[in-house]
Amino acid sequence: MAALLSPVAPGGQTRTAPPPSGRSGGVGRHWPFLLIVPALLVLLAVFVYPVAHTFVGAFTTPKPGTENFTWFFGSPANVAVLTRTFSTALWATLICLALAYPYAYLMTVASPRARAALLLIVMLPFWTSLMVRTFAWLVLLQDTGVVNGFLGLFGLGPVGLVRSQAGVLIGMVQILMPFMVLPLYSVMSGIDRRLLTAAQSLGARPVVALLRIFVPLSLPGVAAGSTMVFITSLGFYVTPALLGSPSEALISQFMYTQVSGMLMWGRGGAMAVVLFATTLLLTGLLGLAMRAGRRTRAGAR
């Protein structure tokens, strides 16, 4: 009966749309963009210009040419540093993912109060200075530190937790955890948990439902978090400098030595260019892979 009573739009009644009030095209429509000009100017001055200067310097200092790059790739030690930097970043990413995935999952199923507490715990590193945290790790991890002291009670150790790859990874993972947990949580909290109930009604054990439904749907969070952690860890300086071994330096420490110690600005610039280009290449490949995955999903029509 609702259909019978529903009003039929009377014909012949042409409704004239009122002209859009206020600004109509021209400069007026673009004036909000003026608001970002101050920020753009600051970025140009303190970010774009120095980066451009460094990149240009890589090709021009001390004299124009690719001398700096020949130097970098000519020495196996340099290439080893680059490889070590990427492998450290990869390990940091994998460890972060392994720790953050269950943590973020717990956040999605926890009560609102517990969730707030979990979020607070993961955010705490953000509120402490990087230096303070790294020194704190030094206190905890050194051979005479808290951890080895505790192990000593049982006649174990001391374990070389500091001045080693392990120390670097411990420090990096703790600092980078929020960058993995937050994107994961954001994606996971958007997954409809009723899908898991549905999967169970269709005969899937709870763990199968989790692996076949929840995990695939959380992959965008994995990709976002991993990219963020990986790229950030490539540029770490303070943590490897304090917790790492000088014989296993990462590329940022190498740049520092070249620039600050040997005043070889061109070589530092060349290393920056190589790191930048490699990072761009890797993230570009990841992005392409993800888009291809999406296309096979959406383009199956």
């Binding site: 409809d192 009723r194 899908l195 109930t197 549905a198 999967a199 169970q200 009604s201 269709l202 005969g203 899937a204 054990r205 709870p206 439902a209 076949r212 439904i213 695939p216 749907l217 999903r297 199956a300």
Partner: peptide, 30 residues
């Protein structure tokens, strides 16, 4: 008996289709 062993079909108001699977994969799931 847990839900996955009851052999009962359920249709929900919110459809509960798996968004990352095709129609055929959804139906083949059980």
């Amino acid at each position: 008996t847990p839900a996955h062993k009851r052999d009962i079909g359920v249709v929900f108001q919110h459809y509960a289709l798996f968004p990352h699977m095709t129609v055929a994969e959804n139906i083949a799931f059980p």
